Amino acid sequence: MGQIKVTQTRGLAGKPESQRLAIKGLGLRRRHHTVVVEDTDAIRGLISKVVHLVEVEEIKE
């Protein structure tokens, strides 16, 4: 499997706890923070929960 780059673009103020936990599960800590994670089904599930708060980019190898 490849890797994907996930950047948090919006803040968490007023968001439900489930979305806050999904952001934390992705390893994001604040706005404009970027992490590189493995492209797995579990990670894709977390991203789908907060797709309106993050920007996703696939890393070409």
Rank of each mutant, 00 (worst) to 15 (best):
A42D: 12
G27M: 07
K49A: 07
E17G: 06
G27K: 07
I59D: 10
K60S: 14
P16Y: 06
E57F: 09
P16V: 03
R20W: 06
V56M: 02
I59E: 09
E57L: 09
H52L: 03
T7F: 05
D39C: 02
L46Q: 11
I47N: 00
I47D: 00
Q8S: 03
I43H: 01
V35D: 09
T9Y: 06
A22P: 01
I43A: 00
G27A: 06
I23Y: 06
R31D: 08
E17Q: 15
G27C: 12
V35W: 09
R44C: 04
L12P: 03
S48R: 15
A42S: 15
E57T: 14
R10A: 10
L26I: 10
K49L: 08
I4T: 06
K5E: 15
A42P: 00
T40R: 02
G11Y: 04
R29Q: 14
A22I: 04
L28R: 10
H33R: 06
I23E: 02
L21A: 12
P16N: 07
I4K: 11
R29I: 10
I43Q: 00
A22C: 09
L53D: 01
L12Q: 02
R29Y: 11
V36S: 14
Q19V: 05
A13S: 14
G14I: 08
G45M: 02
H32L: 09
K60L: 11
T7S: 13
E55I: 02
K24P: 01
K15Y: 01
L28A: 07
E38P: 11
G11V: 03
K24M: 10
R44F: 05
L28W: 12
I4Q: 07
H32T: 04
T9F: 04
L46I: 05
I4M: 15
R20F: 02
E17V: 12
R29N: 12
G25T: 03
V37M: 11
K24E: 07
V51P: 00
A42V: 11
L46P: 02
V51L: 12
I47G: 00
L12S: 05
T40D: 07
V50E: 01
G45D: 07
R30W: 05
L28K: 06
V35E: 10
D39E: 10
T40A: 09
I4F: 10
E57M: 08
G25A: 08
T40F: 11
R29D: 09
E17R: 11
I43G: 00
R44Q: 15
V6E: 03
I59Q: 11
K5G: 03
I47H: 00
